[in-house]
């Protein structure tokens, strides 16, 4: 049975002109990216022996990354208002008094966001198809891109929903979503950067022998944080598609991570990195959704247990003094 929220939201949004304008602007941005890429290619080919058709395969990463970028930007905006919008419309309480669980509500909102995203992506297929029809890209990569777009939508939507459940206002939720993005994009680079700085300091301050010992220990395992870095994930995905080589494997070889001890040696080989990274992104998305559902659930499990425990105690006045202090709602 289809989630009622998905059914309703898709129906309501499809009647709005906003979705038409959204697709129009999306296509417009893609068209601009397409023409810009064509101009650059044309300039490059003028000074080389290769023909324009073989260069057109590069439309694939250009258009795909443009779309991923747009999705990454708009999905949190759409989902950040999912819960707070229901609250503002004052339909949220009614929703929670029905048989729907908090997780079903959250999943309904995420699925709506994913369907919307895929609607945009599928609408862009004619533009994307140019790199397949003229450029000679394999059609398998098209499905690869669709899967990537789904993953990006799920991840972005889960961040948006989590922020929407944490913030009262939609705008705060959007800002918080972008801050979480920054944490994933830049924050996961920090351990690697700090380790590199430490290594450089060690190289300047110690002898050659000590430096070698420092390099090939467990330190390189800090690179594992990059498993949840979206930029690294995209680089790995498009690196494999366009050149057939793994960016991570090359990086691991260059930094000597393959010679180190610990997990990194096993993870940064072959296609393992990509698989583990995908699983982690899906896992984090569901973790965020679970947290959001706990956040919006008015009868939180832990509080319920505490309430039951309190009820078993004889002196109610004592209980009141020890009550869970909660913020006022609705002025009551």
């Amino acid at each position: 049975m289809l989630n009622p929220i998905v059914k309703k939201d898709v129906k309501v949004q499809s009647r709005s002109m906003r979705i038409c304008w959204g697709v129009f602007i999306y296509e417009l941005i893609l068209a601009l990216a397409f023409f810009l890429a064509m101009i650059i290619m044309e300039q490059q080919i003028r000074f080389s022996t290769s023909n324009i058709y073989s260069a057109m395969v590069w439309l694939y990463p250009v258009l795909a990354l443009t779309q991923i970028g747009i999705l990454g930007l708009i999905v949190p905006v759409r989902t950040a208002s999912a819960i707070s919008g229901e609250k503002e419309r004052q339909t949220f309480d009614i929703m929670l008094t029905t048989s729907m669980t908090a997780f079903s509500v959250v999943m309904g909102k995420v699925m709506t966001a994913m369907i919307q995203s895929m609607f945009f992506v599928i609408a862009s297929m004619p533009v994307m198809a140019l790199s397949f029809v003229i450029g000679g890209m394999s059609w398998g990569y098209l499905f690869g891109f669709l899967a990537l777009a789904l993953l990006v939508s799920l991840f972005s939507a889960s961040i948006g929903i989590l922020c929407s459940s944490l913030c009262k206002k939609s705008i705060s939720a959007v800002i918080m979503s972008y801050i979480i993005y920054i944490v994933f994009f830049l924050g996961t680079f920090l351990p690697y950067l700090l380790y590199e700085v430490a290594l450089m300091n060690a190289a300047y301050s110690t002898t050659q022998t000590t430096n070698a010992a420092l390099t090939y220990t467990y330190g390189e395992n800090l690179y594992l944080f990059l498993l949840v870095n979206p930029a690294v994930y995209l680089a790995e995905f498009f690196g494999r598609v366009m050149t057939g080589e793994s960016v991570v494997n090359t990086f691991a070889t260059l930094t000597g991570a393959h010679q180190t001890k610990g997990l990194i040696n096993h993870v940064a080989t072959g296609s393992r990195w990509m698989v583990i990274s995908t699983v982690l992104f899906v896992g984090i998305s569901f973790l965020f959704l679970w947290l959001a559902s706990k956040r919006i659930d008015p009868i939180k499990r832990r509080a319920k247990k505490r309430a039951k425990k309190q009820m078993q105690q004889p002196d109610m006045q004592v209980i009141v003094q020890e009550n869970i202090m909660q913020k006022p709602e609705d002025g009551q």
């Binding site: 008094t97 709602e329 009551q332």
Partner: peptide, 16 residues
């Protein structure tokens, strides 16, 4: 309203 919200499961009572 607080009482009604607790009856409807929209709010958890501290006791009772």
């Amino acid at each position: 309203t607080t009482t009604i919200r607790m009856v409807c499961g929209l709010m958890l009572p501290n006791a009772g």
